[in-house]
Design a protein around this nucleic acid. Structure first.
Ligand SMILES: [Mn+2]
Ligand SMILES: [Mn+2]
Ligand SMILES: [Mn+2]
Ligand SMILES: [Mn+2]
Lengths: 219, 219
DNA sequence: ATTAATTTTTAGTCTAGACTAAAAATTAAT
DNA sequence: ATTAATTTTTAGTCTAGACTAAAAATTAAT
């Protein structure tokens, strides 16, 4: 069944909210991320339920069905592959690609995305460290930690970010924090949970808890 | 001013119809190419005139303004550059790319299209021999002839096609007619204006007037 | 010059996807 | 257990962009 641009954006956002929780998703949480009003969300949820892409009980929240999830994953696959293209082939920085990928992810062609995948040499992660679902919609669970969870004096590797926003990514770039960087946690301030880090033996840098929370690492 | 998808498609089609004639364009001719009804076209023409992209007089037809033309050309530039990308980088055949480019041409990003242009090494023509407008919207007038205009026993080079449809392009491929082919007109039948051609000294092939009309050549 | 045929426009309608305001249901607070 | 606060839904409205049917203007035919 064909999907409209609006429907695709809803499914993608519901997927993101469903990830990491087994509770049903609230109308308001969707409204916030889509920048729509709750009433508009209710409207759309009824349509999506009608099409069999979500299970939805009035007042009781919503979840993706298997089909809904596979549609969401195919959009995420397209989004992330296009991001790789923009960075690897066109020379964009990682903080510049998200908005363009938001448009490209809606281009509809099965062959296109598979040819693109092959042209890019079947990348496993996008420029932000996010895993790319395969053709079958399978997505590896990478099991990364948030940097904010790492203990004092432990060393870890920067594997990804939990946020695509340009200002956040630009801040990381300025701090010399990029994918693959080795980070040692040399200080954690109990007052505000801010963190001092050594990157490859350089003199320590200082980041807030908010930043640490959005950095994904592997021990 | 922002352009919607529908508006962009109208402007592109009006551009195509304006090309090659200095008469104003009729509502019906637009309706035919957009696959809309004349009443819907009238509606849209009023909006486009309001925005200053066409000059429009009730019952008297329509033309693009300078601004309207530059919008149309920027869409055509995007369409053709994406077609080059699809053929050169992703390995598509020339008959497979038009529909996908119809989607890609609406992606909005100034930097994207210029980076793409550079990545493709600033191509001058697309896979169908159509010239690619530059950043400033300038498009070279190539002055090709239709193969149907070539005289008996003359030899010419296949430079482009006047039609993007898949079935037409597949026919050309089957007949071994591709860009750059050297063609000698060895027979013209006065009855139906069908043509026999020699391609590089091979044994002659036979094409209808309809096909000859849609092949563009240089003497 | 009139009339007929054709083209174009107007008037009114529909759908998707948004909105506001008010009603209903759920959840939190006493 | 009631009441208050919060969340969600319903009812009604709007806009873009399509449609049909009828009216108006233009063009072609007599
Ligand atoms: Mn992104
Ligand atoms: Mn990403
Ligand atoms: Mn094309
Ligand atoms: Mn083309």
């Amino acid at each position: 069944m064909a999907t409209s641009l609006a429907e695709e954006n809803y499914l993608k956002i519901i997927y993101r909210l469903c990830e990491g929780t087994k509770e049903d998703i609230s109308t308001n949480s969707i409204a916030e991320l889509t920048n729509n009003k709750a009433a508009s969300v209710t409207d759309m949820l009824q349509k999506l339920a009608e099409k069999g892409w979500v299970t939805y009980q009035k007042y009781q929240g919503v979840r993706l069905t298997k089909i809904g999830e596979s549609i969401a994953l195919s959009i995420i696959r397209k989004h992330r592959l296009w991001e790789v293209f923009l960075v690897e082939k066109l020379g964009y920085n990682w903080d510049e690609v998200h908005e363009i990928a938001e448009q490209l992810e809606h281009i509809e062609s099965e062959t296109l995305i598979n040819k693109l995948d092959s042209f890019l040499d079947f990348p496993k992660i996008d420029p932000h460290g996010d895993p790319i679902p395969n053709k079958e919609g399978e997505i590896p669970e990478l099991g990364y930690l948030h940097l904010s969870e790492v203990k004092l004096n432990e060393t870890c590797t920067l594997m990804g970010v939990a946020k695509d926003s340009a200002v956040f990514l630009q801040l990381l770039t300025k701090l010399n924090l990029s994918l693959g960087a080795r980070l040692e946690v040399v200080e954690i301030n109990t007052f505000d949970r801010s963190v001092s880090l050594k990157i490859a033996e350089e003199k320590p840098i200082f980041i807030s808890h908010e930043v640490a929370k959005n950095i994904l690492v592997k021990i």
